[in-house]
Design a protein around this nucleic acid. Structure first.
Lengths: 225, 225
DNA sequence: TCAAGTAAATGAACGTTATTCATTTACTAC
DNA sequence: GTAGTAAATGAATAACGTTCATTTACTTGA
């Protein structure tokens, strides 16, 4: 006599009649856990519990926790704003993309060490973003050999900056070592913050504007031979 | 009848006659472990074994493993080359410092998430480096409010770039998705590498030169009001 | 149609890891 | 000298990622 699965019912061993897991479901559940409690809360046990499944069941769909993180990574890439590429001038499009990219990864810094060394083969959405960028650079007249280095340089700056945002605002307070380091102590106090921005935002703005201008100069230098 | 401690002798419980541990010894042993086998090999147990001590003994000197990493972090900062500041022009000094900084952290990427949010109070060597930088920027005539944002921007770029170096050289190979992403695939193939350099080096060079030039432009814009 | 193979779940187990605690012994200060 | 603290051992713990045997359902080929 079959019993319909009640909400608290226990699933017996053996392959279930209808699928209860998939990569998509795992990705969504992982993302939900992360948003609720950060990366500390993302454990294979917690993930299994959220999906109402035994931890070992996850390993029929992913090879490791690292694998889960790769799925999450490729998913959140979709939320980066690339809409300005193609419709707006190069510098403005890069600016919008970069701020959006940084904001997304500010909430996902533990993914940075992963994405930075992850072959794009395993991350179709990431590849898609690169394609969009490359097309826009070409459209803008960039010499092809400079495009990938330029993207990587921008990305590196973005990743590094994402870490900054999470830093405590008093990170540069010298404390008792202030007297031994007077110039830096003073510079910290006089730091330009910009309109209503945090120190991290000010540094990102300065660096991004510098990088955008500097890359354009490098491009001009290349074209000049 | 007291027995001199032979090399393989077992230390009895209780406070030892002469100190066997200190923060300095722990730092040195941790660094040695990391250099020998990377951060995976740095466990509290391995550290204790290297120091011929029980794991719990470490906790009389550090509060946590995180604490050990902070000690290591502040130690390796000393190996960054700041010698050009004060003796060479601003841009050349920044260039040398940045390459050196990146090279050091290439071998210590797991420290990046830590240093990026670590209050400088707990890292005197790091503070010292910032003081050296600030003095050089002032010497060069930089407006004080821009100095900290500029340093943070450079550092962010350096940290992000350090991750890149560890990436496999075929990280951007599109594989079976090549046809769907033709522009990027082509750009990867035509990528400018520079004289005998890796892709990571080329991107770092391009970005660093862009950033150096761009920051100088930002500085000029600020001074002009 | 049946048999073999594979997919996908459970549940028990394992080896690490960082960390804590009780205990012991030596040093230090009043 | 006695109380308190510093610094070691060794046993214990909880959490985590992962593996394995087992069970059951679906799929495929003769």
């Amino acid at each position: 006599m079959a019993v319909e699965a009640a909400s608290g019912a226990h699933r017996p061993a053996g392959r279930p009649t209808q699928k209860v897991l998939s990569k998509e479901l795992i990705t969504a559940a992982a993302l939900k856990l992360i948003e609720a409690g950060g990366y500390d809360r993302l454990t294979m046990s917690a993930l299994a519990k959220a999906l109402q499944v035994a931890p070992s069941a996850l390993y029929n769909h992913v090879a490791s926790k690292q694998d889960v993180l790769v799925l999450v990574q490729d998913d959140i890439i979709k939320s980066i704003d690339v809409s300005a590429f193609g419709s707006r001038p190069w510098d403005e499009a890069v600016r919008r993309w970069a701020w959006s990219y940084r904001d997304v990864f500010t909430r996902h810094t533990p993914l940075i060490p992963i994405i930075a060394v992850l072959p794009v083969t395993g991350a179709p959405q990431t590849l898609r973003m690169y394609e969009t960028l490359t097309s826009a650079f070409l459209q803008d007249g960039w010499p092809e050999p400079l495009i990938v280095p330029a993207i990587v340089a921008l990305e590196s700056f973005i990743f590094g900056s994402a870490f900054d945002v999470g830093a405590p605002s008093d990170i540069f307070e010298s404390g008792e070592l202030a007297e031994a380091n007077p110039n830096f102590t003073s510079a910290v106090r006089s730091q330009e913050l910009g309109a209503g921005g945090s120190a991290a935002d000010a540094a990102f703005r300065l660096g991004l504007e510098g990088l955008i201008g500097g890359l354009q100069a490098q491009r001009a230098a290349w074209s000049a031979g």
